[in-house]
């Protein structure tokens, strides 16, 4: 009871903001999983690359800096697809997971090399910092970036729903996610559908990079690493097999993290990660398709 008592409006607003960011990341991970059956462990490093781009273009006008961030992240996504995902397309999901794990470390180390040229770790990204200012709404201090995060998430998810539901490429992506082999036999171009999913997931990663950099303007090589792990947990718990359950899982874990961190003193949350990961194991064993999914489908390989 007393937990609820200390959850004030401020905490709730911030929690919704975090949930929105994690939902965007969940969609990015879920889109690529849908067409490739690949859990991209290196998704956080795409966000990290975007954050560094913002830091290194701090002297540019904000719009230019953000445009550069999108360009770099999308280019890196496509490069990753071409160099890593494509040769692995016939590999097992476990091999793909290990490989993206290696790619994550690779990119993080590259970032470290770039970062420590000036003998300090961490690069400030100041150009987007003004977005972090608070404005007062109905007596609650809301940082502008929280509004941006929620707004971007709503718009992005809405556009994505339209794209998947109303366009030919969207239809083909849904079919590819359900049964790629049959989709190809019908003439659906695998390369095009995959590239499309990867670009969309890159756009989302870039948006997340901007939002997270505003909130945390000191960019380091492990930027977004913890967030990615938490989002992966949310995605698996929600149900990675379907985009909407994955998204819901991402939002839920972001919101829950925000509320718990806001409501409980630090010394009471130190074992929170253990509880969260224990929940993951429980869900994988009892409901492999995810908490929000219908039925008991398993998180298994498809041929």
């Amino acid at each position: 009871m007393n937990v609820l008592a200390v959850v004030d409006a401020q905490t709730l607003v911030d929690a919704v903001g975090l949930g929105a960011v994690y939902a965007l990341m969940a969609v990015g991970i879920g889109l690529v999983f849908g067409v490739l059956r690949l859990v991209n462990f290196a998704y956080g490093q795409l966000v990290m690359a975007g954050a560094y781009t913002l830091a290194f273009t701090s002297t540019w006008p904000v719009a230019g800096s953000i445009a550069a961030c999108f360009a770099v992240v999308i280019a890196l996504s496509l490069l990753m697809e071409r160099a890593v995902f494509r040769p692995l397309r016939t590999s097992s999901p476990a091999v793909m997971l290990v490989t993206t794990f290696a790619v994550a470390f690779l990119l993080q180390s590259v970032a470290l090399i770039v970062d420590v040229r000036d003998d300090t770790i961490g690069e400030p990204a100041s150009s987007v910092a003004p977005l972090n200012q608070a404005i007062s709404l109905a007596g609650v201090d809301v940082r502008k970036v929280t509004l941006v995060a929620v707004g971007v998430a709503i718009v992005a998810l809405g556009l994505l729903a339209l794209l998947l539901g109303r366009t030919t490429i969207g239809l083909q992506m849904r079919a590819a996610a359900a049964d790629f082999r049959t989709a190809r036999l019908l003439g659906v171009r695998a390369d095009r559908v995959i590239a499309f999913a990867v670009v969309l997931s890159g756009i989302l990663a870039a948006a997340v990079a901007v939002i997270l950099t505003v909130q945390n303007p000191l960019v380091s090589p492990d930027f977004a690493l913890k967030d990615t792990i938490v989002v992966l947990v949310g995605v698996v718990v929600g149900g990675i097999d379907r985009l909407w359950t994955a998204t819901l899982g991402g939002f839920a874990i972001g919101f829950a993290t925000g509320v718990i961190n806001g409501a409980l003193p630090t010394e009471q949350t130190v074992f929170l990660p253990s509880a969260v990961f224990a929940l993951v194991i429980l869900v994988l064993i009892l409901r492999p398709a995810g908490l929000f999914a219908r039925g008991r489908g398993a998180l298994v390989e498809r041929v």
Binding site: L171, Q172, R174, A175, A178, D179, T182, L186, G187, V188
Partner: peptide
């Protein structure tokens, strides 16, 4: 065009969407 063994219908999509998928090879 192949009509595969076991039909391989996309059960979650509508009938019309299934047919529109076939247009990919047109």
């Amino acid at each position: 065009a192949l009509v595969p063994e076991g039909r391989r219908i996309f059960g979650d999509l509508s009938v019309e969407e299934n047919l529109r998928l076939g247009l990919a090879a047109r």
